[in-house]
Design a protein around this nucleic acid. Structure first.
Lengths: 232, 232
DNA sequence: GAGTGGTCTAGACCACTCG
DNA sequence: GAGTGGTCTAGACCACTCA
């Protein structure tokens, strides 16, 4: 049996998409809807909350609910874990550790990690293969102040990402997605001509107030895309 | 006054991030948490639901709640409306209509639109400028079966996107993000050298069962990025 | 000041899933 | 079968915001 609030949500959604309530129009009060559908107000509120989270409806106290003018489409973005992605489409995954050393990180990383100048962080470079073809170049810094045990970890067997996932769940992450022309070192590692188009993801991850790790993932443009869905 | 469920959510979050409940660990039953915090079970459920939506917790009936092994980070992706984005950072926005005609769309578009072979759709190409510099090339098809009034619309004043937003709120969208080497026509329009790296967004939008529009947005790599945040 | 949404309670029944 | 989360009710108080 499907929950009442979901059924109501679908009916309200239909009224929005079929033009009964065009963009900008007022939606009846929660109390009125509760009476119409023969449920209590919290149930209506639950249905409306989903529509608000989906960006279709805006609610303000005194002012009531309205159909949103959707200026900013929102979608849930899943950044795939490279191994899951490759194995999910039947490819053979492999992982090669290119380098691993403690070093003073660049200023941007140092600031995010809250490190004093000259203090080291762990720098790891590795390459992820799909059926023997380089699919992702990973350039990662790990905050040794937060995760000193990373210094003793051998990342040739377990990839840094998989290890980190089991250590600390992050509470907050920020990601930048962009296209770029491949820098020489990246182009060489990925077997691309210099200047080839690549897709770059830069992610910084925090737990509590401290950044745990910052990573740049570089992908050949031809073999990488992110697909995203929105709505129901 | 901050709601109880938010306060509880923060406490639970802290227990997860500080390692009290490491990844994979069981979280006490809702009933136990309700007693601990002196609230009723629905309030606990509300707090946990937020954590589930944030990907930090997994719940299964009989089995209870656990801290998730976060294999798939999720983030809310906001694809900016080009005009808002440019004006938001103080730039001067301009919009130039390059072409507008009814034509038979390519097969992929025809399938999404549910059109018979040879049936026309509206094809619009336009360019969006930031302080006089080309910032986005828009290549759009509009389904005239669903929106016949688009045929009479003059898109030189109002951009297709702004017009569409006011006509139909979409119920579902799918987007593909990728990097590419600019094709000759795109490179020329964007004043880029041929083969330059570009960031491409392809979005298909549905309302009910019919796709309304499909659009490809091409951006110079140097001037475009998407920033995304996750968690609290 | 008054109307609307935001939240909470106390209790209940049910669905799902594990043992 | 039994334990856990999923949902719902009936009623309530409060916060915010508009007129």
């Amino acid at each position: 049996m499907t929950p009442k609030y979901k059924g109501i949500r679908e009916i309200l959604l239909a009224r929005i998409t079929d033009g009964t309530w065009p963009p900008g129009a007022a939606i009846p009060h929660e109390a009125a809807l509760a009476e119409e559908f023969g449920v209590t107000r919290p149930t209506i509120s639950r249905a409306l909350r989903d529509l608000v989270e989906g960006g279709l409806v805006e609610r303000r106290r005194r002012a009531g609910s309205r159909v949103a003018l959707r200026h900013t489409p929102e979608a849930v973005l899943r950044i795939p874990v490279v191994r899951d992605e490759i194995e999910g489409r039947g490819g053979i995954y492999a992982h090669l550790l290119l380098g691993r050393r403690a070093a003073a990180p660049p200023a941007a990383v140092r600031a995010a990690f809250g490190l004093a100048p000259g203090k080291p962080a762990l720098h790891i470079r590795s390459l992820h293969f799909d059926n023997g073809r380089p699919q992702q170049l990973e350039d990662r810094w790990i905050n040794l102040r937060v995760l000193p045990e990373a210094a003793d970890q051998d990342f040739s067997a377990t990839s840094p990402n998989e290890w980190l996932v089991r250590q600390v769940p992050y509470s907050r992450a920020e990601q930048v997605l962009r296209a770029a022309a491949a820098e020489p070192a990246a182009a060489e590692a990925l077997h691309l001509p210099p200047g080839a188009a690549v897709f770059v993801i830069e992610r910084t991850t925090w737990t509590g107030g401290d950044a745990i790790t910052q990573v740049r993932l570089t992908h050949p443009a031809e073999t990488f895309r992110i697909v995203t869905r929105d709505g129901w």
